[in-house]
Nucleic acid binder design. Structure first.
Lengths: 192, 192
DNA sequence: CGATATGTTCAGGAATTTCTGAAATGACAA
DNA sequence: TTGTCATTTCAGAAATTCCTGAACATATCG
């Protein structure tokens, strides 16, 4: 690995982080390397830089493709496939969110819904049923919110995040505002 | 495992899901069992229900304690320690968010900040530097938002999530509102 | 105190995951 | 077609993680 020290550190860190998620160390490192690279990299260069076997890199890239996290490119005059990450970090975050949702959240919701269709018999089952209901509700809320903000363009999403908890205050204000504004179609700003 | 079928299914599912995250299958199953149980369970009952060795359960509970995900209780007339999950699912979600943040996000931000303090030399390093900058920005934004909403009481958080993307529209409205209201302390509505 | 019940630790075996090299497949140019 | 380069596959080796039983620690009771 003859990478600049800061790049090496980042790559190693991401490998570790990856393995705390379901992603294996190798795959994390490959992604980190591609993320920092200023040009698309072919598999053999990745293998060389990270000291992995060619076949390992091939499998890692496959995995990243399944996650839709990398893009494949062909450079003129070079037969090899080259790989990059999207330039836009938000695009990466969105993809990650979508894929994790598809793989982890949706199946869980399905299981919960299926179970909740059944009628609990014993007391213990009744209690478990209630617990699953509240879990289902929370997950639904969270994913519903995710769906919603996924539809926003980047700038709006960023604005929203920056506003953070202050949205709560804005909401209060808005309640009042809305009340005033919608009471009558404009002309007179206040009445009553 | 002589659990009701729906409980067994849930427990197994959570075991699988756990292992897609960094959490091992056993720990996931223990948590799922406690989550559904209508009473605090002692370690030996957990071991019995799930078919794990007593020592494995002991280690699993230790892990869950480190994550602050379970509570220990003593029942009158029973010398054994009994374990439960919080009743409130939101409390669980909040704890999970805090712990994952502490373990995964904060160290990453630290690494990024440390690296960004240094001056990049080569072109490649300059590019990597820029990439890390944008990653840092995105993560900061997300965690900042998290911090903010963590402070909200449950009802407000739920209200916020329900509003979802419609907040964006509220924001537009608020922009206008704000503009009008703050332009001057009222008397004259517009000026140069 | 000894007896019994509960909880923890840890060495090493079991199970799983990761990684490799070799062989197979594919893609393309001559 | 053949030859070359690139990529994928996959059996098994290597590494890691998980799990267990036995030993140890701790607590409580009689």
């Amino acid at each position: 690995m003859d990478l600049p020290p800061s790049t090496a550190a980042f790559v190693l860190h991401f490998g570790e982080m990856g393995s705390r998620w379901g992603i294996n160390r190798t795959v994390g490192q490959i992604y980190a390397l591609l993320f920092l690279s200023d040009r698309p990299l072919p598999a053999d260069e990745i293998a060389q830089s990270l000291g992995f076997s060619r076949s390992n890199v091939s499998m890692g890239l496959k995995e990243l493709e399944n996650w839709r996290l990398i893009k494949l490119q062909h450079l003129p005059g070079d037969r090899r496939e080259h790989f990059t990450t999207p330039d836009d970090v938000w695009a990466i975050v969105r993809t990650l969110a979508e894929e994790r949702r598809k793989r982890e959240v949706d199946p869980t919701l399905t299981l919960l819904r299926d179970t909740l269709m059944q009628t609990p018999r014993s007391d213990a089952e009744k209690h478990a049923h209630k617990r699953m209901e509240s879990l289902h509700e929370v997950i639904s809320l969270l994913t519903g919110w995710m769906d919603d903000v996924q539809k926003l363009p980047d700038e709006r999403l960023v604005a929203l995040l920056k506003l953070g908890g202050r949205v709560a205050r804005v909401l209060e204000a808005t309640d009042r505002f809305h009340e005033i504004v919608t009471r009558k179609p404009r002309r007179k700003a206040q009445e009553g």
